[in-house]
Amino acid sequence: MKWDWSAVSDFMPHFWDGLLVTLQILVLGSLISFALGLVWALLMRVPTRWVTWPVGAVTEFVRNTPLLVQLFFLFYVLPEWGVTFSALTTGVFAIGLHYSTYTMQVYRAGIEAVPVGQWEAATALNLPLRRTWTAVILPQAVRRVVPALGNYVISMLKDTPLLMAITVLEMLGEARLFSQQNFQFTEPLTVIGFAFIVISYLASLALRALERRLVH
């Protein structure tokens, strides 16, 4: 096995560019998935099956089909319908949508874990529905589910390389480009593989610290 340190140092500038894009995808994708997941979770509680069945079916479908094909779908079909976004925007939206179908489960579990006495108290205080949710239920539910949401952020980090398939130059995209130009595959791929392990490990440590803080 030949290892060439000069290839590593040549790759590093590209690596930082890629890392920046990866983190961008991660942050924006997480925000979309947190927001959209909450919307799905709330819609699933609307007391009519005209809402819950379509929402349930769509999210089930998105959750059980590959993100890669969803990316292709959005990347190639939307322009046919006359909607054009950059590859990065499409990718961020796709990954956010995909993960929102996971986060909705997390929110749902969190909402169901709020003790029934809280609901009864809100009714007893004659709080309107809106205030019951915003001031009583959601603050307690969201606090419970932060660690679980964090797990999905780490999962999402490991799905960001998929955006390479729709021409986004994140870490893996940069590594592939560099390898093809210089015919050095070993070093860039190993560097980013290592980077993924380090980032997800640090993230899981941070998450555990956060979890401890929230519990106490």
């Binding site: 980090l157 490991k158 799905d159 960001t160 390389p161 998929l162 390479m164 893996l172 590594a175 592939r176 791929l189 190993t190 980013i192 593989g193 993924f196 392990i197 380090v198 997800s200 490990y201």
Partner: peptide, 10 residues
């Protein structure tokens, strides 16, 4: 810790 796609490339 690493991504499945990176592993496939590797």
């Amino acid at each position: 810790g690493t991504s499945a796609l990176v592993m496939i490339f590797w």
